[in-house]
Simulated scan of single mutants.
Amino acid sequence: MTNLAHKRMSAAEYLAFERASETKHQFFDGEVFAMAGGSYVHALVSNNVAAEIRSCLKGTPCQAVGSDLRVATPGGLYTYPDVTVHCGPPTFVDEQSDTLTNPRLLVEVLSPSTERYDRGRKFEQYRGIRSLTDYLIVSQGHASVDHFFRREADGAWLLMGYSGMEAQVSVDNLGIVLPLSEIYAGVDFSAAEPDPLPPLRPGATF
């Protein structure tokens, strides 16, 4: 992401700017950040995840959408997750119906330039969304998914890690199972960008 320092503005100004823009930008704390395009593998994995989740959610009140939908956090981050799931009626920041505020599941497919941000500042912002129960961080360099999920008793977030094409991600809060063989269907890992950081240790709390 590139910071457009000269574009410092309010959230309302950002939305007006973004709705007129031909390219996507994230927004946080008065600053606008240009979003770079993803690689072929990034796009393929993102589409696989969205398709598999949609298939699993058939017949439920939940819907999965891709990266064209903007999401806003209570902390003021406006961003475009790779996959967003909401359940029941969607809620938006205004009548334009293009900035969701009540996601249940968010998915980010890692890129070398965004990994620290996706695991750090962005996840910190996502944890402030009261409706959110699950966050998936999906590698594009190898078959690996980190699943963060909210523990109901105390609200802490726990981590489960999955690796290998035989593994399956169990998203109990939505009653779905996502095989890594489907998430990575058609992926040539030799053409993928390497992951700069090792996966987090399962069992961690946040």
Rank of each mutant, 00 (worst) to 15 (best):
A143N: 09
D134E: 11
A12K: 15
A20S: 13
T205Q: 11
R19H: 07
R8D: 03
A156R: 11
P103D: 01
T60A: 01
T205P: 04
N3K: 08
T2M: 13
P179Y: 06
V177P: 05
F92P: 07
V107L: 03
A72Y: 04
F123Y: 14
L100D: 00
Y126I: 08
V85E: 00
G161N: 06
R8C: 09
F148S: 07
T79F: 13
T205C: 10
A20F: 06
L15E: 06
Y14D: 02
S170D: 12
D94P: 11
D154W: 11
E18M: 04
D172F: 14
P89T: 00
T84M: 00
Y162I: 13
H42K: 12
T73E: 01
G175Y: 04
H142A: 10
H86A: 00
F148P: 09
G37Q: 13
Q26Y: 07
Y78T: 06
H142E: 11
Y40L: 15
F33I: 15
A50V: 12
T101A: 03
D134W: 08
H25A: 07
D154M: 13
L4D: 03
V171T: 08
F28L: 14
V169R: 14
Q26K: 13
G141I: 05
R130D: 05
V45Q: 07
E115Y: 05
G59P: 14
R121P: 11
R119A: 14
L159Q: 04
T60D: 00
A34R: 07
S190G: 15
G59N: 02
D118T: 14
G88H: 00
L132D: 00
D98K: 09
C56F: 07
G37P: 05
R104Q: 00
P89D: 00
T60N: 01
P74L: 01
R119K: 08
V187K: 05
D29Y: 09
G30F: 14
G164I: 08
C56R: 15
F123E: 01
V85C: 03
L197C: 12
R19K: 12
M160S: 14
Y80R: 04
E193G: 09
G75E: 03
A11Q: 10
S97L: 14
N3D: 06
L200Y: 13
A156E: 08
D98M: 12
F149G: 04
A51T: 14
A167H: 05
Y117R: 10
Q26I: 09
G66Q: 02
A64Y: 09
R121S: 12
A72P: 12
M165T: 14
A167Q: 04
N173F: 03
T91K: 10
C87A: 01
F27G: 10
V71F: 08
A64T: 07
G186M: 09
F27Q: 04
L178S: 06
R119C: 05
D82R: 10
I176H: 03
P89E: 00
A5Q: 10
A34Q: 09
S139D: 05
K122L: 08
G203S: 10
D94L: 08
A43G: 15
F17E: 03
T73D: 02
H147C: 15
E18S: 13
A143V: 13
Q63S: 13
T23E: 07
S163E: 15
D146R: 11
D188S: 12
